[in-house]
Design a protein around this nucleic acid. Structure first.
Lengths: 223, 223, 223, 223
DNA sequence: CATGAATGAGGTTTCATTCAT
DNA sequence: GATGAATGAAACCTCATTCAT
């Protein structure tokens, strides 16, 4: 197998763009979605333009028409992925509820979002392998910043004011830690499962993990 | 850009094998080390056999002579990377010290090892992208299991016996969490730095991160 | 798999040279026999020096020591193959028996020799693909000539004298025809079997073929 | 000689595809024709994709675009070669003429077709070296079957009915024998010429061979 | 807007052969 | 006499990208 990447079948999973053509917005979206799957599954180097076109049910030339080249397509994919999580985060409204509940909700949300969007983890890994080169090229990079950091800051402030939480907690550090606990477990599930000889994705294992993470964070915060 | 991967200069960083040939063990090692760097930097798909040969100062053909193909070379690289961290872990001797100190030491060790061995994180990310396919092929996969899990179990037991630590803590969950806190921060440093607009690798930031992680874990464990 | 030839396992069938080394004649023979199998199975282009060494249970370097290069090794193999059939032919003694019986014997001998030595057919095919370039380099090419042609000439003469056989038969043409009838059937057995949807090598089919060939030749010769 | 195959010049004999591009059918044909020559001349292992592209006057990448890989290209070449002879055979209309004349015509046709299409013999030899692996993959393998076998059956029947031919002749056996007589002579002409020290392809030799074969077959058939 | 055909560069791998012991 | 290590050349094949319609 003189090939560069592991062999894989190329079959159109689902022709995302079953419009009779002539719908730019939809075509664009179809490409992004197909590319998201492909990049998530194989990384930037492993993703194949042909495979993306096939997944999208579109001619390869169109990818270039819409996105110029592979790198820029990845950038678009990445931006949409961030957009997705930021939108979901904005719907959380942590500030309006009890601090303890807010933390539970934040941990659970992070966990569930990553589980529902494994491609997001994979895309981030790819982007970090490339030293965030695509992210750095996005124009309004600040909008990538999570609205949750500010919300978390306010939750911590409320908790501290109510003498529930310890003081001196950096919301960014905590935000990163909460993300880390879910992210690492899921992103590295294959090596961890192999090494520990357990299926980390069994329902029971997932429940235990969420409990553990919640207890860990609250155990730390609560006075 | 007609090439698949971002352009990069190919220059022999350092001829790892400045033996006059005819030293199999040394040649083998030179290949593994060069490959480790290359795979860590560019992933499996992005790594170039030519580049590895150049880095190692060896004829490309030799890589095939010793390892058969790219995949098997990656497997060898991965196995050696695990071997490295397991060896370091075995030198920790957590069981012989005060539980609190042991936890501090474990968190700091994990952090420092990842900082000293960024290639390890990258290799693991690659392997997880490939669903641990190489790891699953290693013969004695159980030896990949960290000796720290058992040590941590005993630390937790001591802590609980001394009424210092809470009970009911699963050592595997905690081990994963401790790894997660350092791993995610470092592995995702580029996207995080870009988004937060701060340099997460500034000395001050590193110190703060280690403190935060230690407090988080101990804050959770201590009664 | 970017390989040139169809994949195949390389395993030493039988270490022909299980001498403790130091037996030139035996080593030489072991190489020739291993090479014969390899060349017969894969052709000159498809044969692999490594595979031959492995089959012979010898170091690859020895093949070069004894034969110089692949081409010359093939020449040696070919010469030995011709030697084999010529030796067998010399044992026939056609002149001493009844002409009809002699023809039967010749047809059957040809058929049986080809069946017992399929590698001979394959080597000849290879050599013809190369326009007999190796054969032309052999020193005493005349010794390659079949002793049977002269014997056949005398058989035909006897048959004609006894008013059994027709006259005017060129022994070389007939010799070629007799060879052709067996050779083509066996050498092309795979395509013929595929196309006719029958197994040409089934015992019944073989018997029928020999009968047919014998009848064909005798039917032509007999007055 | 560090190369695998005998050296040879690579020069575009004749740019088969002097279309200004954009003519798929023509391009496809140009590839097949170039590949036919190359495979016939050097065998499957010896044929070079580069050389085929050069012969066809096309970009090497196109061969893969149209045929996937070398093996599949060979299969296409082989199928076209069979198609060619089957088409020619269908134009013979043996059933409509006198049985004796029909046999003469069949022998001469076989002889002349092989002479006009030496590549056909070579391709068949290659395919048999590979145990008909490509032929077995062709979908309608039955259409490869010669229409002549049935025609020959009817000729034999007519001949027998007219008390001209012997009975009990298997048309497949006879068909194979007729093919064999021409095939072996031509396919093995180089070794035979070398060994007999005569030029088997001299015009006189060719005439004699055709006579001999015709007499042989008719001598057998005629009562 | 959309597409099948075409391409240059470069990737992995293989091979016959030689070197150093 | 015998061997494992090493090599340069070239083979097959892949890929992102562009051309012509």
């Amino acid at each position: 197998m003189p090939t560069k990447e592991p062999k894989r079948k190329m079959r159109a999973i689902r022709s995302v763009a079953d419009n009779g053509g002539r719908n730019p917005a939809r075509t664009r979206l179809a490409i992004i979605e197909a590319a998201t799957q492909e990049f998530a599954e194989f990384g930037i180097g492993g993703a194949r333009i042909d495979a993306i076109a096939l997944r999208a049910g579109l001619n390869k030339r169109l990818l270039y028409y819409y996105f110029g080249n592979k790198e820029d397509l990845f950038q678009a994919v990445l931006e949409r992925a961030y957009e997705g999580i930021r939108t979901a985060e904005r719907a959380l409204h942590l500030g309006e509820i009890d601090p303890i509940e807010a933390i539970r909700k934040l941990v659970a949300f992070t966990w569930n979002y990553y589980i529902a969007h494994p491609e997001f983890l994979s895309l981030l890994n790819s982007e970090n392998l490339h030293r965030a080169s695509h992210l750095k090229k996005t124009s309004n990079i600040m909008e990538m910043n999570s609205p949750l950091v500010q919300a978390l800051d306010s939750v911590l402030e409320h908790g501290r004011a109510s003498r529930l939480f310890r003081s001196g907690v950096d919301p960014i550090q905590l935000y990163i830690s909460i993300a880390a606990l879910s992210y690492f477990y899921l992103s590295n599930q294959h090596t961890l499962s192999a090494i520990f000889g357990r299926d980390l994705r069994a329902p029971k294992a997932e429940t235990e993990r969420l409990s553990h993470m919640t207890e860990l964070v609250l155990g730390y915060l609560l006075l």
